[in-house]
Computed example of a mutant assay.
Amino acid sequence: MPGNLLKNPNADEDFEHWMVIENGGDEWHIEEMSEPAFSDDSVTKYFCTSFEPCLKRQVIDLLENGYDPENLDFAQPAVTVTDWYSRQPDCGCIYKLSVALLDDKQDVIAEFSPDDVTLPDTDDCSWKQVTHTFTEYGPGLRFIFFEHGGQDTKYWKGWFGVRVTGSSVTIDV
């Protein structure tokens, strides 16, 4: 079974595999990694949002990724979601994340949608991690919905909104 089920989590392939849901302001943008450095040296790029809401998503089809439906129903393996976010220098930002486990009709079985995070312009710009593990969610898991993004808090032209990279969805088999 594959490790990270999200494709192109670090902007290495531009926006390939991502469905842009909202593309506000100056639209989504990709930038080269800068200070502060990311915890994984292999991550060299990140996605950056603008002054109006920017959201992008992937819906992962577990059967297409080789998972057996009976095993998913019986074992209900842990599903772990991780995302990294940071603000741009000189501007605050808002970070949003929503993840859901879906059945074969793409109805929600379980979801993780934490409150939006607002990073003030006094924040140190360090990369912050959010992680959640789904367990004991019941039978029927067939898809995983992953959506994230945000915007800046000063409505500045350009790409001063939240930065995201290093996203992952893994299943503990």
Rank of each mutant, 00 (worst) to 15 (best):
125 C>I: 00
30 I>A: 10
96 K>I: 01
10 N>K: 12
162 V>F: 03
60 I>P: 13
53 P>N: 15
41 D>K: 10
125 C>P: 00
76 Q>R: 13
32 E>F: 13
67 Y>P: 14
103 D>P: 15
50 S>F: 13
149 G>M: 05
86 S>V: 04
11 A>W: 06
160 F>G: 13
56 K>P: 13
77 P>K: 10
147 E>V: 03
71 N>E: 15
160 F>R: 14
129 Q>C: 01
117 V>L: 07
15 F>Y: 14
47 F>V: 02
25 G>A: 05
81 V>W: 00
141 L>V: 02
77 P>M: 09
134 F>L: 09
22 E>A: 10
61 D>T: 06
134 F>T: 10
133 T>V: 02
127 W>S: 08
89 P>T: 03
73 D>G: 08
65 N>M: 05
34 S>C: 05
139 P>M: 01
68 D>Y: 08
89 P>R: 05
57 R>P: 10
38 F>Q: 00
166 G>H: 04
63 L>K: 15
53 P>G: 12
11 A>S: 09
100 A>F: 03
90 D>W: 05
152 D>K: 08
54 C>E: 12
135 T>K: 05
115 D>W: 01
107 D>G: 11
84 W>Y: 07
55 L>R: 14
165 T>F: 00
151 Q>C: 11
72 L>A: 02
147 E>P: 09
55 L>I: 07
83 D>Q: 13
68 D>L: 08
72 L>V: 01
158 G>H: 08
59 V>Q: 10
72 L>E: 01
125 C>Q: 07
85 Y>L: 01
32 E>S: 14
41 D>H: 09
102 L>S: 09
56 K>L: 09
112 F>G: 01
9 P>V: 00
3 G>Q: 10
172 D>N: 15
32 E>T: 12
151 Q>D: 11
1 M>V: 12
3 G>P: 10
71 N>V: 14
84 W>M: 03
64 E>V: 07
155 Y>H: 15
108 V>C: 12
52 E>M: 14
130 V>W: 00
137 Y>Q: 03
2 P>T: 02
134 F>S: 13
90 D>H: 12
51 F>A: 08
112 F>L: 03
97 L>Q: 01
36 P>W: 01
